[in-house]
């Protein structure tokens, strides 16, 4: 079956990929939070952040087109949720037109707020995307665990990651079988067939979870979790953290 694999680009050898996962997480989170706290008036700051992020993309050797095409897929969501701010925010009108009884007016304040929000949302999702593309998901989870995220949550997420593709495969197989057998039929008939498929998937997933649990018990699972974390902090990582933090704070102090 075909999947859009989560971390197919995480095995590239590059400076960004080789960073210690904890350091990478902290630097990217700092970047995201500092983008969020940009003052609305400081539009040039967004340009500076974008340049910083694309410098990181260049360092990570991930194809630029891939980053762009993946990141553009979030734009429709951002637009749907924020486009109406242009019309609703009261302020000095820039452009007015009337549609029958409705009168729409685009205001200066609305436009500024919209650009501010859209830029923040896009840049943050871009940084998150780069973090995910350059880090193996299981290493990311281990780093989160090292950063004191409760290990039960980490275990649940890593189980989810492990069985996600198994269940997806099962679902796609059922869907293909259904599609090849049902050609005609009303919309309601198809909806019912798909819902029954989900029901079957639930029952199978539940039974699989019990099988997994019994297998874990048979191998001596006692509720405790032990993981190996084979990363060490190197001078290189600390240098990256220092550079990242100072770059972000320079943007913050001088532009906003």
């Amino acid at each position: 079956m075909e999947h859009s694999y989560i971390d197919e680009y995480s095995r590239i050898k590059s400076f960004i990929h080789n960073l210690e996962p904890r350091i990478k997480l902290i630097s990217f989170f700092a970047l995201i939070v500092s983008i969020i706290f940009t003052r609305p008036a400081a539009m040039p700051a967004f340009g500076a952040y974008a340049m910083l992020i694309f410098l990181l993309v260049f360092l990570s050797k991930i194809p630029l087109m891939l980053v762009l095409s993946r990141s553009f897929s979030v734009i429709p969501f951002i637009l749907i949720m924020s486009i109406f701010i242009i019309f609703i925010k009261p302020g000095e009108p820039v452009w007015e037109f009337s549609l029958g009884i409705f009168k729409l007016s685009i205001t200066n304040e609305g436009l500024a707020m919209f650009l501010n929000i859209a830029a923040k949302a896009y840049l943050c999702s871009l940084s998150m995307l780069l973090l995910m593309l350059s880090t193996n998901f299981l290493n990311l989870l281990k780093a989160l665990e090292k950063l004191r995220v409760p290990s039960i949550l980490i275990m649940i997420i890593s189980f989810m990651y492990r069985y996600l593709f198994v269940l997806e495969d099962e679902l796609m197989r059922m869907k293909r079988a259904k599609d090849s057998r049902t050609i005609a039929g009303s919309r309601w008939f198809h909806a019912r067939a798909l819902a029954n498929m989900l029901g079957v998937l639930f029952v199978r997933a539940y039974e699989r979870a019990e099988d997994v649990y019994l297998a874990m018990c048979a191998r001596g699972f006692d509720g405790g979790i032990r993981t190996i974390y084979d990363y060490k902090l190197r001078i290189k990582d600390l240098c990256f953290l220092a550079t990242a933090v100072s770059a972000v704070s320079i943007i913050k102090i001088y532009i906003g």
Binding site: F159, M160, Y163, V166, L167, L201, Y213, F221
Partner: peptide, 18 residues
């Protein structure tokens, strides 16, 4: 109890797939 980890993990994957 200790069934929580596998059950919640697989069920999250189920909701995600659904």
């Amino acid at each position: 109890k200790d069934r929580m980890i596998p059950l919640m993990g697989v069920m999250s994957a189920f909701i995600f797939a659904a």
